[in-house]
């Protein structure tokens, strides 16, 4: 029996493998970033790459509501309602985490999924 693969075949196989790996790579890179999205009334008002936050900052999407951003994490830091549930949610630092201020209709989510696609609660 002759060899099953010639030099040309091996070249093709390797190039196909490399090609498909290359196609995967953008996905892998994108998935590693922690992107926080801030919604107000259902509209995106800010998208923050948490991995690239160098200097912590605080901003106020609406009067009385404050959001604080640090490297790799984000949270509600001030609210105008009395139960302050959104502050109680604490720091968000993982994919799929959400905190919301219902009275002011502001939501922070970190895009993507960690191990789960959706949470039931």
């Amino acid at each position: 029996m002759k060899k099953l693969f010639g030099k040309a075949d091996i070249f093709i196989i390797i190039s196909v493998l490399v090609l498909s790996l290359l196609l995967f790579i953008p996905g892998i890179f994108n998935n590693n970033n922690l992107i926080a999205t801030v919604y107000s009334d259902g509209e995106i008002i800010e998208e923050i790459n948490l991995n690239e936050v160098e200097v912590p900052r605080t901003f106020s999407p609406k009067d009385g509501t404050e959001i604080t951003v640090e490297k790799d994490r984000i949270r509600f830091s001030a609210a105008c309602c009395k139960d302050e549930l959104c502050i109680g949610s604490g720091w968000l630092s993982k994919k799929g985490q959400t905190a919301a201020c219902l009275p002011e209709r502001i939501v922070i989510t970190i895009k993507g999924t960690d191990k789960t696609d959706m949470m039931t609660y």
Partner: peptide
């Protein structure tokens, strides 16, 4: 889909 059931003691974790 992978559905996470919330940890009753910590609502950001499953």
């Amino acid at each position: 889909f992978n559905i996470g059931i919330v940890n009753p003691e910590n609502d950001t974790e499953s």
